[in-house]
Design a protein around this nucleic acid. Structure first.
Lengths: 242, 242
DNA sequence: TTGACTTATATGTCTAGACATATAATCGTA
DNA sequence: TACGATTATATGTCTAGACATATAAGTCAA
């Protein structure tokens, strides 16, 4: 995993400056707290204008690799928390990306006025109607995950008439509701009877749970719970620093 | 976007431009695929130089909110994957941040020549010595997580003499090994006898597992497995887009 | 219709300045 | 010694230009 390519093939100057500094930080040559050269020193070293080094340093600051302090200089940040970037793909995309055949099966779909439990789950005080969907995703005919979803129809009216018997609701929403925000909660449970049957695992086997709550500009869109067989599925997250 | 209502309290112009555009994207006013105004149009609208709008647009591109194409313009990106930022804090920091009292207990520490299993776990072909550590973290006297760690002494020689009876190895490493990279794998298991006893839960209860593999510039540092009671602990990840 | 060539244009990068602003360091005073 | 005022300075933002470059779109010939 080449973290910094050779300086010579870097296309532009500011990218080369950024890569040079990033390399020194990541290899530990410049440890946390180290003051990196002043802008005017880098200007002299690279023979360019201040705007060019400023752009390089600004990007490093945006990436939280350095901290810039007026009058004091720029310092390598001490990574106090481990911020991992976790990619939770659309399940269909995830499975096909693995080169396996994707299978989808709608277990149940109900359109109803929101119950108290529904409102609680969606985090709204009063809601009109909701769609509740249960479905199963499989890879190479083997159960991959079961999904239990609630969609707020006051935010996504089209979901009332959408055909979820062939298209998974996650994919449908991805194409019909642009730019949502979401919060994920990851936990573990053991399979109860229904879950065990749906995932074709033993009762009492471990399951990885992802609860996702999605909204757009303060409007609730959907709440979904995904259950994966805990011993087969893996969520991988990578991060830099810390 | 109110260009007439000149907000004197707005921090800076380029940040205002960025915020204006970001808002339109996030509210869905400008959906994915929408071409946002050309730089020269924004220059006219805001009455500033091109470098200023360029800085705003560059930051939006860096945040993956827009895509910039030469000659064609800048377009709102379609969020194809759900990239969540998952913060996995140092456990001590995590517990104290919750306002609970942190407790730490070293269960075992062994310095040994790396076995085949150790080498496999660390992903190295030949290693000299390693330290194996087992410890337990608790919050308000209640078991919070158990940790099973391997440190490669050829990368971190100081770990051989570090006193892990009082300081958790995670915290120690955080202060002694700067700027690592890591990969996390999240899964679920059910507690076996030893785990159940260490976490004070029932045998067969669900556990959330985080395996973290850490390196710095191609050198393996440590491999650690953290076990959390699955029904109590939650990993929260937030993301924008998708 | 298709492919090759040309042109127009939006973004990418860069310059050599400018003034603003926060703040570390210094100095002066009580 | 402690504290308040002053000064120096590194970063933050911005300008009005410049040339480079990728590429969408148009042009023309086979």
């Amino acid at each position: 995993m080449s973290l910094a390519t050779d300086a010579a093939d870097q296309p532009t100057l500011y990218k080369r400056i950024r890569a040079d500094i990033e390399k020194r930080i990541l290899t530990g040559e410049w440890p946390p707290g180290h003051r990196i050269p002043f802008e005017h020193e880098l200007v002299a070293r690279y023979g360019c204008s201040r705007m060019t080094v400023n752009k390089a340093l600004s990007e490093l600051a945006q990436a939280d690799l350095i901290e810039r302090r007026r009058r004091a200089g720029s310092f390598v940040r001490r990574p106090q928390h481990q911020s991992a970037v976790l990619t939770i793909a659309d399940i269909r995309a995830e499975i096909t990306a693995l080169g396996r055949s994707y299978g989808y099966e709608l277990i149940g779909r109900k359109l109803r006025a929101a119950t108290a439990a529904d409102r609680d789950r969606l985090g709204v005080k009063k809601a009109g109607k909701v769609v509740a969907i249960a479905c199963r995703h499989s890879a190479d005919k083997v159960p991959f995950a079961v999904e239990d979803r609630l969609i707020d129809l006051s935010s996504v009216p089209d979901a009332a008439t959408a055909d979820f018997s062939r298209e998974p609701p996650g994919s449908w929403l991805l194409h019909h509701v642009p730019w949502t925000e979401a919060e994920h909660t990851i936990s573990a449970i053991v399979a109860d009877d229904r879950t065990a049957e749906a995932l074709d695992i033993a009762v009492g086997a471990p399951c990885l749970v992802i609860d996702r709550y999605t909204w757009r500009s303060a409007r609730t869109i959907t709440a979904v719970r995904l259950l994966y067989p805990g011993d087969s599925h893996r969520l991988v997250a990578r991060f830099k620093g810390g």
